[in-house]
Amino acid sequence: MGIRIEAFPRERRHTLYFLDQARAFAPVFLDTEVDWSGIRRRRASGRGFSTVTHVLHAAARVLAEHLEANSAIARGLRPKVARYDSVNGKLTFDKVLNGRRVVLSTVLEGLQTASLEEIQERVEHFRDGDPAVMPEFARVRALHGLPRLAAPVAYRAVSRSLRRRPQTMGTFAVTSLGHRPVDGFHSVGGTTITLGLGRVTDRPVVRGGRVEVAPVLRLNLAFDHRVIDGAEAADVLAEIKERLEADDGGAAEPTAAAEPTAAEESAGEGRANGTRPAEPRGTEEHR
């Protein structure tokens, strides 16, 4: 049996450093289901936005009202917690860098006042951009080029600063695998609140005592128990759910022919989430 042992790839060093640092987190996981009917009507009427755009928009407005959750902690003999007025969303992408498939993240700042249109434009900018030349990923590329012992030190210096964290790590995180047949998953994104998104698919729901079929999103939330407690996290999750379910964009009920099926919506979710359709390994897909 042949075995090939090789050096850890430079292009994934940032992920390794992040996971080493994430060990300090004390994650607790919650989940719920979101009725996506209203948002699907928006899409059917021609005013659709991606799933992650809707979640970023709703979560930012909720966290603007929950500064306890829109915060970060610094450990030490005298732990400190920073509360942030700006709500900055960290969003992850599945990209190709130097021929290697990697996860890269970016921070979208000031989401508490950004419209759906503005958020969608930012998502598409990073979806379509080449990380090998985009200035937003210059620091990551520089990190990959540092000597092996210096790189993790540089990463910690940037990511641990409470004053710089909103710009480098965000104040909350969103990551999606909804372009694949994944119902839901939990992830720790390096922020006090991390939202994990699965696919939107038709499921049985009860309305007025009757069982109906409706598009449903599994929405998962991980929170750092060092910063907030379960009741606060549950409030955040519940309010995000309420905002998403109330978001029909004022669209009128479409005809049955106009409304996309669950299969059609799932097939297009890769594109809607700021990704490209499923293709062989090596293409750029949103994570």
Rank of each mutant, 00 (worst) to 15 (best):
232 E>D: 06
214 A>P: 00
137 F>L: 11
166 P>W: 02
11 E>G: 07
274 G>Y: 06
243 R>V: 07
119 I>S: 00
135 P>W: 09
162 L>D: 12
248 D>P: 00
235 D>M: 11
130 D>L: 07
32 T>I: 10
50 S>F: 02
216 V>H: 00
278 A>R: 09
97 L>S: 08
62 V>D: 04
19 L>M: 14
240 I>Q: 01
112 Q>H: 10
52 V>Q: 04
243 R>C: 04
107 V>H: 01
166 P>D: 13
67 L>P: 13
65 E>Q: 13
156 R>A: 13
15 T>G: 12
88 N>L: 06
242 E>L: 06
23 R>D: 12
144 H>V: 10
155 Y>P: 09
141 R>M: 11
3 I>D: 12
60 A>S: 15
191 T>H: 05
83 R>L: 11
167 Q>D: 15
62 V>A: 05
61 R>T: 10
263 A>T: 08
140 V>Y: 12
215 P>V: 01
61 R>C: 07
65 E>C: 11
231 A>Q: 05
283 T>D: 09
130 D>V: 09
1 M>G: 11
108 L>N: 01
170 G>I: 08
17 Y>G: 13
148 R>V: 15
247 D>Y: 03
102 V>W: 03
226 R>M: 04
273 N>C: 06
203 R>N: 00
61 R>M: 09
21 Q>H: 13
160 R>H: 11
100 R>S: 12
123 V>E: 01
67 L>Q: 15
272 A>M: 04
43 R>A: 06
149 L>I: 11
